[in-house]
Design a protein around this nucleic acid. Structure first.
Length: 657
DNA sequence: CGGAGTGACGCCCTCTGCTGGATAATG
DNA sequence: ACATTATCCAGCAGAGGGCGTCACTCCG
């Protein structure tokens, strides 16, 4: 006897699950396949009639799990999902169609096509006179194709989402699906069992069909036939490895007489013993991968009906376990208990032995312990990064793929993490943006993390002393140092030895001192004229020796007179007679040539600089006085003169020149 | 046989904090 | 004009919460 069991590959399960068998999706897929959809499914009792087609096309879909039957007359589609089958006789020849009655062999073609790594079963049946389902239906395994007639018994689940079961027992309907029917087409031991489960006898013999209807709440119109193996315990020729015939698999020596004369059954795998055959059978199934209970929506298989029901509930949204303290509801009692621990009782049975951490779930404690041990089991395949859990690795992989799944709904900027997007929206597009006040100073910072940087940089205690650049004071906190140095800001601490001139910066005093020394270190290469400052030399050179030089001119908006300095123009403009304004564009003075104007930020600074300049001029001599020149030598502090002072002086010189 | 309880794995989320580039302010 | 510094901002990772799902055992 041959046995073929088709397991549902996880990949396929995922794919089908993603489709969720939503009608629209299925219709799309149907159009892609060029296959029409059933608009109204057959009633369970009409299975044979529905499966009698003038031309029947059956092929495996998605990894060999489905047969698509395409009737030509009604342009309808049925999907047969084949699970596990058993065969009465020895394996049949793949291309052998002798299993068909001679009168039906004409026009039938059985083709096995190669697909993927293995022999992908692909069955095409083209025949015009088949009269019944069992004649035209074959069952394919991983590498073989068999006729339905070769099977001793099989279950065929006919799922029809929008059709009420014709004869479904209410208990059975509740236990598997809302609309479930069962056709029993074979007499035997299974009959009693199936009838007990809500089946009913159909009109055929030698075949066993279980017809299931889908939930019917999603408007599904397609029909899915699911074929799965029945409990074949009574078959004599079943292999010992078949978990369904565990009693057969247990040798007679395993049958022991218990007290009172009852037999006990011992598992030859783990030694488990039971006096009840039902318990023993159930235990034996734990050693096998047998999953006879298949979800008709996603084809996933389960070992027990309970598991299947819980799974189906995930499709239907049925959540029997409702929380008494909130509106949440769950599929299983375990989920409810866990939810209550998280949200209501806050019971955390799993406690870390190394810290105070406690969790609701053991897996969370296990994950937490990795933060102590440093274990990083999840290695990135593209770099050296390894994470402590799968999600972090998945999140990390976005750095390689460039994926930015989170989009700002306002500006459509994209982000790699939801948290980043959230703070972006908060800071950029929200009205009440939270700010963080530094507890040690008046600084207000937009982000908490940046406040921490601020505290670290400005308010943290530094072991090394930080000296004031103006005096001998030392500080251990940078903010205190800065505040202290500001007190030196308006001090004119640099006093000229030769006159009453004083200034705030040493470099200004250096320039001033040249007035007394007569030093003019900057000589013009074209005319040998010497200057105390490099900038003055540059201005001279541009004005007298650079033919391309066009000086910046600020025009008075009232009279149009040109000034090289904006401040001079403004002073003039204030005294200029009104009514002579040329144009509105000259309201603030016209700039020429100069791209970045030396417009002062504060008028006070301008006045302050002018006063300083006046002070320097008052205490010294005229700037045109000659001084010895040392070729190639530049005076320190003259190349980076403060704009507030030096530019004013230079521009004033330009006006004078 | 079914339900409860438990464990395990996975997924997704939030909160948090650090980092470094960009930019503005300042000297 | 330039250098330095503070703040802004997105990227990224650590840690943990909460739920979905399923397998398994125990018990009535």
């Amino acid at each position: 006897m041959a046995e073929t069991e088709i397991s549902v590959p996880s990949e396929q399960f995922t794919k089908i699950k993603e489709l969720e068998l939503v009608p629209e999706v299925l219709e799309e897929k149907a159009e892609e396949d060029g296959v029409c959809r059933v608009k109204e499914g057959p009633r369970p009792g009409e299975l044979e009639a529905q499966c009698t087609y003038e031309a029947l096309q059956a092929k495996m879909l998605e990894g060999g799990q489905e047969l698509v039957l395409v009737p030509t007359e009604e342009s309808q589609k049925q999907i047969l999902t084949l699970q596990t089958v058993h065969f009465v006789s020895e394996d049949v020849e793949l291309q052998d169609i002798s299993w068909l009655a001679p009168e039906h062999q004409e026009g039938v073609q059985v083709v096995v096509q190669q697909a993927g790594s293995g022999l992908q079963p692909l069955l095409w049946l083209e025949e015009g006179s088949l009269q019944s389902l069992h004649q035209c239906l074959a069952v394919s395994g991983q590498e073989e194709v068999y006729a339905l007639q070769e099977m001793q018994a099989a279950q065929v689940h006919v799922l029809e989402g929008n059709t009420a079961a014709a004869a479904g027992d209410s208990e059975f309907v509740v236990s598997l699906a809302e609309n479930t029917g069962l056709i029993k087409l074979e007499k035997g031991l299974e009959e009693a069992q199936l009838v007990a489960e809500g089946g009913f006898s159909g009109g055929r013999e030698e075949q066993l069909f279980l017809l299931e209807a889908g939930p019917g709440d999603e408007g599904r119109e397609e029909i899915i036939l699911t074929m799965s193996r029945l409990n074949m315990e009574e078959q004599e020729d079943k292999p010992a490895s078949d978990p369904a015939c565990v009693e057969k698999a247990t040798s007679p020596k395993d049958h022991k007489k218990a007290k009172g004369g009852e037999r006990t059954f011992q598992c030859d795998v783990c030694g488990f013993t039971s006096s009840r055959i039902s318990s023993f059978n159930r235990h034996k199934k734990t050693h096998s991968n047998e999953k006879p209970h298949t979800c008709h929506l996603c084809l996933k298989a389960f070992r027990t009906v309970t598991l299947l029901r819980n799974h189906v509930n995930t499709h239907t949204g049925t959540r029997p376990y409702k929380c008494g303290d909130c509106d949440m509801a769950f599929v299983t009692s375990g989920e409810l208990v866990r939810h209550r621990r998280y949200k209501h009782t806050h019971e955390k049975p799993f406690k870390c032995s190394m810290c105070k951490y406690a969790s609701v779930e053991a897996s969370k404690l296990k994950r937490h312990i990795r933060s102590h041990t440093g274990e990083r089991p999840f290695q990135c395949g593209l770099c050296s990064y390894a994470s402590k859990d799968t999600y972090k690795l998945k999140r990390h992989m976005r750095t390689h793929s460039g994926e930015k799944p989170y989009e700002c709904h306002v500006c459509h900027a994209r982000f790699t993490q939801s948290g980043t997007m959230k703070i972006h929206v908060l800071q950029k597009h929200s009205e009440n943006v939270p700010k963080y006040q530094c507890p040690h100073c008046a600084t207000i910072i937009a982000r908490k993390s940046d406040l921490r940087v601020h505290l670290r940089n400005l308010h943290a205690y530094k072991a090394t002393e930080m000296k004031c650049r103006h005096c001998s004071a030392v500080f251990h906190e940078r903010y205190a140092l800065i505040q202290h140095q500001k007190t030196h800001k308006n001090e004119k601490r640099f006093q000229c030895e030769h006159c009453s001139y004083s200034c705030k910066q040493e470099r200004h005093l250096t320039v001033h001192t040249r007035i007394h020394t007569g030093e003019k270190p900057f000589a013009c290469l074209s005319c040998n004229k010497c200057f105390r400052q490099k900038q003055l030399l540059n201005v001279h050179f541009k004005k007298h020796h650079d033919t391309d030089f066009i000086p910046t001119v600020y025009e008075c908006p009232k009279c149009g007179r040109g000034f090289s300095r904006w401040t001079n123009m403004r002073k003039h403009s204030e005294k200029c007679e009104p009514g002579q304004e040329k144009s509105a564009t000259l309201g603030e003075g016209r700039r020429m040539r100069r791209r970045k104007p030396a417009v002062p930020k504060e008028a006070g600074k301008e006045d302050e600089a002018a006063a300083e300049e006046a002070s320097a001029a008052k205490g010294g001599q005229s700037p045109g006085e000659a001084a010895p020149v040392e070729p190639g030598e530049t005076m320190a502090g003259t190349e980076d003169l403060d704009e507030d002072v030096t530019c004013e002086m230079i521009l004033d010189m330009m006006d004078k020149l």
